[in-house]
Design a protein around this nucleic acid. Structure first.
Lengths: 335, 335
DNA sequence: GTGAAAGCGCTAACAA
DNA sequence: TTGTTAGCGCTTTCAC
């Protein structure tokens, strides 16, 4: 089998404790012996067994990462950030995909705890009550992605979704739009996207614009879905002059539907998105959207977790990263 | 701390082996005692410590998954497949992102072994010689993604890239194209994409068409890159009537460049892709491309690994999944 | 500065 | 059928 600390000790003619000491630098070892041990390690290619180490130290160098979808580029980019920072600190990622299903989320949270992960980065579309409770009393450090609800006791990192949505809506208003549709996420109270919804409403309010309930629709972050929603607008004959989709994918679904039905974007309808995934500037017309530092969100979350693990003070439980309104081709000023 | 098997044993008034037996069903236990133990487990919420279990069994219920990029939708979808099947069999995923760098790949392979993973699913852009060697003598089961080179001893799952590329090229030829550019992957001998290249060449050959070396370019799977390549075609005044990109992303980059420079697709130039990622049918013009069962590739690889772990016979070392040529809007017949 | 020994939580002979 | 015991490979007291 694999070579163990015992083998190294024997070959070097020392005790296993000594070997352990030179590996971990946990206690002084005379230079002579250290060299001898190091040489044997070199020769044998010995690598300490992390599982054994985990068992005794109750540490695993593992971070559990829970996401609702792996084929979502937004999430993928966040994962890139997480992984990159993890690598820097020698943390590995235990990946869990839940498709946003509560049952899976709970199951995985349990499993991760059992696997002795040292921290958990958690992402979901819909942060249900049950989850919140669970997360608040879990023993390992947790970081939430894309939730800036300070009501939660659980730390999180995201942009200011409320403000961003407010800005975008205001931008549309200042461009002369009065009937502005919103394609947001699920209806659930705790759904990701609630902040966007509130920002949207506040902006309309502040500018004395009426809120047309029939123009607020619930999507599921999928293009097909927003496509259908816009189709409904058309069929119901209530197509607005602007559509604000809570994600770039949904914006693109909306645009495609418009194009397929003979409408021009942005000439007939302005469509704006959210996130600024790579596709946003590649799709034609290029999307007007809210830019988020996606990679950084992942990176910051990981840094936060690692700090917590090391018992370092974390400045704030809710990290809010900057966003930016990017005006491209999918929106226009109307008279 | 957490509750252990000892606690359960004490509470139930039995030995730890008995508890172990009821957990694992490894040996018969009288019904009476089983119930008692089960009850204690229920009450205490006891969960066996997988780390300890790993240590003694030298099994971890962990599969290492090595990928070159997480924000790539093609890879994301494969991951979905891998994860889904893993979940079914209670395997978890240790995720490693290498950005295709050999150094990282080697490092992770080592690390995964140390972490006692039971299998490894490996994906890279460029399967370098050193990697091949390493993979052939690694002790744990390995499955390669998207390599159908039977020269390798390492099992793999993919479509028949050669055949697919051949079909696509032939399709273009039959559509009247004579000057067909290929945007393939890196120049490296072992690069993913070599099969496509060969299929392309063979098709031209078989149809008596000359191979224009200047029309064969090396991309890096990124849109920006193929964009530039097409720009070069334009600047060098050698724009062909058809462009075959080895990935949908690269096809889209190519189209964007064409559009930006006043060319129409497919009227002026036909552009076809490879993979049929979701975007392919969402982007306008919709892409003519080769459909791959992406999710299935991941799922099959995972199944394969699990079979190997269980010592089951695996039918074939090289699993080739079906592909399909999908004709959409980005290509047309020329006279 | 070094080694012996205990123990992390679990499984699996081996006895009974 | 059940319990006792010896490890899995490692870290860490505690003596020396």
């Amino acid at each position: 089998m694999s070579i163990t600390i015992k083998d190294v000790a024997k070959k070097a003619g020392v005790s296993i404790s000594t070997v352990s000491r030179v590996i971990n630098g946990s206690k002084p070892v005379s230079n002579e012996i250290r060299q001898k041990v190091l040489k044997v390690i070199e020769e044998t290619g010995y690598m300490p067994n992390p599982v054994a180490r985990s068992l005794v130290m109750k540490k695993s160098q593992l971070i559990g990462v829970v996401v609702p979808d792996l084929s979502n580029v937004f999430i993928g980019e966040i994962l890139n950030g997480i992984e990159e920072i993890g690598k820097m600190y020698d943390y590995d990622i235990l990946l869990c995909n839940t498709y946003g299903q509560l049952e899976q989320e709970l199951r995985y949270l349990n499993l991760l705890k059992a696997k002795q992960v040292e921290g958990i980065i958690f992402m979901t579309w819909n942060l249900q009550e049950k989850l919140v409770e669970y997360l608040e009393k879990i023993e390992v450090p947790v970081a939430l992605i894309n939730r800036n609800t300070s009501k939660l006791h659980t730390p999180s990192v995201s942009i200011d979704n409320f403000k961003a949505a407010y800005e975008m809506t205001e931008f549309l208003i200042k461009n002369g739009h009065k009937r502005i549709a919103l394609i947001r996420s699920s209806m659930d109270q705790n759904a990701f996207g609630l902040d966007q919804y509130n920002g949207y409403k506040k902006a309309l309010d502040d500018h004395g614009l009426e809120i047309h309930e029939e123009l607020i629709r619930y999507g599921n972050w999928k293009m097909e879905n927003s496509y259908q929603i816009v189709k409904d607008f058309i069929d119901e004959n209530i197509l607005p002059t602007a559509i604000f989709a809570a994600s770039d994918e949904m914006a693109i679904g909306a645009i495609n539907c418009l194009l397929d039905n003979g409408y021009k974007v942005p000439e007939d309808v302005s469509v704006v998105g959210f996130n600024d995934i790579k596709l946003a500037s590649i799709y034609r017309p290029k999307l007007t959207t809210i830019h988020q530092p996606i990679y950084d969100i992942g990176a910051v979350a990981m840094r936060m977790i690692i700090k917590k693990i090391n018992g370092e003070e974390v400045d704030s439980n809710v990290v809010t990263l900057p966003h930016e309104l990017i005006v491209r081709e999918s929106s226009k000023c109307i008279e």
